[in-house]
Amino acid sequence: MSRTSSARGAGHSRLDLTQDVALLTAAVIDIESLSGHEAALADAVEDALRALPHLEVTRNGDSIVARTSLGRAERIILAGHLDTVPLPTVAGSRGTVPCSWDGGMLYGRGATDMKGGVAVQLAIAATVPEPNKDITFIFYDHEEVAAAKSGLGRLERENRELLDADFGILLEPTNGTVEGGCNGTIRFEVTTRGLAAHSARAWMGENAIHAAAPILARLAAYAPSTVNVDGLDYRESLNAVKIHGGTAGNVIPDACVVEVNYRFAPDKTPAQAEERVRELLAGFEMVRTDSSAGARPGLNVPAAASFVATVGKEPLPKYGWTDVARLSEMGIPAVNFGPGDPLLAHSDNEHVLAADIRACLDVLTRWLK
Score class of each variant (00 low, 15 high):
Ala355Ile: 04
Val85Tyr: 12
Ala73His: 09
Asp362Ile: 02
Val311His: 12
Ile31Gln: 05
Arg94Ser: 07
Met114Ala: 14
Ala223Ile: 11
Ala304Asn: 02
Glu161Leu: 08
Thr226Ile: 08
Ala221Cys: 02
Asn207Tyr: 06
Ala125Ile: 09
Leu195Cys: 07
Glu130Tyr: 07
Arg3Gly: 14
His210Tyr: 15
Ile332Lys: 09
Thr18Tyr: 07
Arg193Cys: 12
Asn207Val: 06
Asn239Cys: 08
Arg201Glu: 05
Ala220Cys: 06
Lys115Pro: 01
Asn261Val: 15
Met330Cys: 08
Ala211Met: 08
Leu219Gln: 09
His54Pro: 13
Ala221Leu: 02
Ala126Cys: 12
Arg187Ile: 00
Ala265Trp: 00
Leu41Glu: 06
Ala66Thr: 05
Thr247Ser: 12
Leu170Met: 13
Glu189Cys: 04
Pro266Arg: 02
Ser150Asp: 07
Leu170Ser: 02
Glu74Pro: 01
Glu350Pro: 08
Gly11Val: 13
Asp141Cys: 00
Ala304Arg: 01
Ala355Arg: 06
Gly180Asn: 03
Val145Ser: 04
Thr191Cys: 11
Arg187Met: 05
Ser328Lys: 01
Ala126His: 15
Val65Asn: 04
Arg3His: 13
Asp348Gln: 15
Ser328Tyr: 07
Asn228Leu: 07
Gly151Val: 06
Val363Asn: 01
Ala304Trp: 08
Thr25Tyr: 11
Glu206Ser: 10
Ala221Asn: 12
Gly249Val: 03
Tyr107His: 07
Ser150Glu: 03
Ala303Glu: 08
Leu78Phe: 05
Ile138Met: 05
Gly331Asn: 11
Cys99Arg: 05
Phe188Cys: 08
Arg72Phe: 06
Leu122Glu: 01
Pro315Glu: 01
Leu353Glu: 15
Thr25Trp: 10
Asn300Lys: 03
Phe337Pro: 03
Thr112Tyr: 04
Ala211Ile: 02
Gly95Asn: 10
Pro253Ile: 00
Leu106Pro: 01
Gly176Lys: 03
Ala66Arg: 02
Thr191Ser: 14
Pro53Phe: 04
Lys318Ile: 15
His210Asn: 12
Thr191Trp: 00
Thr365His: 15
Gly36Ile: 13
Glu56Thr: 14
Leu316Val: 10
Ser292Trp: 09
Asn300Cys: 00
Gly331Phe: 10
Asp134Thr: 11
Ala39Trp: 15
Asp267Lys: 03
Asp30Cys: 13
Ala273Thr: 10
Phe307Asp: 01
Val118His: 02
Arg218Met: 05
Lys318Asp: 05
Ala197Thr: 07
Ala196Cys: 14
His12Cys: 00
His210Val: 15
Asp47Thr: 13
Arg8Asn: 07
His346Ile: 01
Ile138Cys: 00
Pro266Ile: 05
Ala26Asn: 12
Leu49Cys: 06
Val363Cys: 06
Ala220Ile: 01
Val258Met: 09
Ile169Tyr: 01
Leu34Thr: 08
Arg3Phe: 11
Asn239Phe: 09
Ser328Asp: 13
Asp141His: 00
Arg154Gln: 05
Arg201Val: 09
